[in-house]
Design a protein around this nucleic acid. Structure first.
Lengths: 134, 134
DNA sequence: CAGCATTTGTACGTATGTATC
DNA sequence: GGATACATACGTACAAATGCT
């Protein structure tokens, strides 16, 4: 239950609840979350607060929004494994808004940046790429 | 200038503006952004909209908030390089709220997950760790 | 010490736009 | 056309923490 008098903010409590339903499998990958309006009514909170909770899950990469169809539990992408070349370094960071559109990244998906010895870089979506060694 | 009649949402225009000031060095690492109230007044928009813009920059890891002191351009962390062991895989994703607190991660900072051959995993903050091969 | 101003966080409400079904 | 659902943007109010007077 959501307790407005609790120490933890209401929108965080709702995010925790939905997250645990996702991690527990009650909300399976590809399934829609209840609509913002429904969640607001069911828990007796405002739609603004519901949106804050869903925003949290979006930044965590747990859900994706297909407007205006609904909000869905993210489906894992097939993963490609990339082998590091000699002198290459791999790092990760969040993309900017422009990069998100360029690489068609979902929200909450980091990019993996491979830097070669000569300083050139390659960018990969972190939900579709893993890195290994030879 | 911010144009409410433009195609791009107002909060995205403000995020673009601040981002370019950060990337251009006008707002240097460690420097505070103008307060939310100031930004709202200067651009003739509501504080709600300003907060959306700053929220965008937070998810990109460009700024950190030290409440209630202000919002600051993120200062780069010293980076440690980790060498992948035999059969290890590196991936990246966003941390959950709980992981953020456990590892004391700033907002907008992904984690790098190293999976060993036996399936065990280690988690590292992506702003302080890079990965290389032997 | 108390009191005040500043700044971000939370939560509410309303209205309108836009895309899908 | 109508209903649904998410996006954007405005407003208000109060809470909490910090720093200054």
């Amino acid at each position: 239950m959501i307790d407005p008098s609790a120490d933890r903010a209401v929108f965080r409590q709702l995010a925790d609840l939905l997250r645990s339903q996702i991690e527990g499998g009650e909300l399976a990958p590809g399934e829609p979350l209840p609509s913002e309006l429904r969640l607001a009514q069911e828990h007796g909170i405002s739609r603004t607060t519901v949106r804050q909770a869903i925003g949290q899950l979006r930044t965590e990469g747990l859900v994706t929004v297909d407007r205006p169809r609904g909000t869905f539990v993210r489906v894992p992408e097939p993963v490609e494994v990339i082998t590091l070349g000699r002198g290459e370094l791999a790092s990760a960071r969040m993309p900017t808004d422009a990069e998100r559109r360029t690489y068609r990244l979902g929200e909450g998906v980091p990019v993996i940046v491979i830097t070669a010895a000569d300083g050139s870089t390659a960018v990969h979506p972190a939900d579709r790429v893993q890195v290994t060694r030879p």
